[in-house]
Simulated scan of single mutants.
Amino acid sequence: MSDHLSGTRAEADPAIDLADLYAFPDPSRTGRLVLVMDVFPNARPGALFSDAASYRFRVRPAAITADHPGSLFEVGPDEHAFTCTFSGPVESDADGEVTQSGTCVLPNGEAVAFQVNDERGGEGRGVRVYAGLRLDPFFMDVGKEVETRSERRLAFLPKGTNTLQDVDVLSIVVEFDVAGLLGSASGTVYAIAAETVTAGPYPIRLERLGRPEVKNVLMSENGVDAANKIVDLRDLYNGEDPFRPGPHYVSAYRSRLNANLAFFDGLDGRLDWTTQPDGTHPLTDLLLADFLVVDVAKPYAEDSYFEIERALLEGRQHTTCGGRSLNDDVIDTLYTLVVNAFHGPRVSDGVDRATTPASREFPYLPPPNLNPPEPASVPPAAASR
């Protein structure tokens, strides 16, 4: 499920479990960027953010070299971080409900205060921040995706079942003027990642997130990676810096991706990707650069996920904003990419939209379902995810 429940640590503490990351230009105003981080899968009414963790968006300028097919993005060392922290729960004296306040520290050091679940959010110079319970915008037929991997065949149906129907998450939304806050010299293309870290002077990374389904699908255990069949790589991967993975386990991540990407390529009975003699898949290095890439100079688009990456692979100029919108059908895009390299029909899980589509106005995500269903049991074959 995108990045929901992506490791044993995340399962043990849902308040720090990153579920999704989105980055897209403001649909209504040019020059503004919207960042959305969802945590706490299957959140219930009254769910709160952790007061022992920091929730951070990390933004870095990126360069694209479209005239060198297959080359990686050039991500600079300069970083702009938006770090949100939360108070402990406070019982309101009006009706006994528990409330929570938050603060978002901007790249320039200024702080924006807000109240959790306040639709108005908090405002600073060129910045708006919201945090609270919302309807989960992600949509996917989890059961059929798990069956596809366990049965080693495309098991999707023309009309699938949205496993996340009517469930909620905790969301953090930051909308800001790019030039005003990051400076015009940083360009228009940005690499974006999210992470949760322990609060305090010596933060420890708990979860990291760039593209959807890297951990739960692309790095899942499918019995094809001969190098590692014991350790759940997701917890190790969650501890890595999104922009610079350490040298200790990168060979394990690379082995898993090489094996799994070849596995996915064969699900339709033919091979559309050509691996190198040493088994390296053409997508491995690009996917290990695990962050969203968005171009704020391009207008908002609802179906542009991975378009900039595809352009990089194909040696052409990208035509959309890239990134990831709240209504983007990323599962179809991902499966079409890895199964047939976009050389065949679109591979669909049969779920084309969320319970309620996201809007184009702040805070973008639909209001929460105040009577959400009980969390569905995880399919047995998903235990390795």
Rank of each mutant, 00 (worst) to 15 (best):
M1F: 07
S2E: 06
D3Y: 07
L5W: 15
A10T: 07
A10E: 13
A12T: 13
A12G: 13
D13M: 09
P14Y: 07
A15S: 15
I16C: 02
D20L: 06
D20M: 07
D20V: 02
D26T: 01
S28D: 09
V34Q: 06
V36T: 13
M37F: 03
R44C: 03
G46M: 11
A52E: 14
A52F: 06
Y55H: 12
R56T: 14
F57P: 01
R58L: 07
A63I: 05
P69E: 14
G70W: 03
S71Q: 03
S71H: 05
L72Q: 14
L72F: 01
V75C: 05
G76F: 08
E79I: 05
S87L: 05
P89K: 11
E91W: 03
E97T: 15
E97V: 11
Q100W: 06
G102Q: 00
V105A: 15
L106M: 13
V112L: 04
A113T: 15
A113C: 02
F114I: 04
N117R: 07
G121Y: 11
R125K: 09
R128V: 03
A131V: 08
F138V: 08
F139S: 07
D141C: 02
G143Q: 04
K144M: 00
V146P: 00
E151R: 14
R152K: 13
F156Y: 11
L157V: 09
L157M: 11
P158M: 10
K159P: 00
T161Q: 10
N162Y: 00
L164I: 08
L164C: 08
V169F: 02
L170Q: 14
V173Q: 12
E175M: 08
L182I: 15
Y190D: 05
A191T: 07
A193D: 07
A193V: 07
E195Q: 13
T196C: 14
P203Q: 12
L209N: 12
P212I: 05
N216T: 15
D225W: 02
N228E: 12
N228H: 09
V231Y: 08
Y237M: 04
E240G: 07
D241G: 02
R244E: 04
H248R: 11
H248D: 10
S251V: 07
A252G: 05
Y253P: 00
S255L: 01
R256T: 07
F263N: 01
D272H: 15
W273A: 04
T274Q: 14
T275L: 03
Q276M: 08
P277H: 08
D278V: 05
T284M: 02
D285Q: 15
L287E: 09
D290P: 00
F291R: 08
K298C: 04
P299Q: 10
E302K: 08
E302I: 03
F306D: 07
R310T: 10
L313Y: 02
R316S: 12
T319D: 01
C321S: 15
G322W: 09
G323N: 10
L326Y: 01
L326D: 02
N327Q: 03
D328R: 00
V330R: 00
D332S: 12
L334R: 02
Y335R: 06
T336N: 06
V338E: 04
G344T: 10
T355H: 13
A358P: 01
S359T: 15
P366K: 10
P368M: 05
L370N: 13
N371H: 14
P372I: 04
P372L: 03
P373F: 10
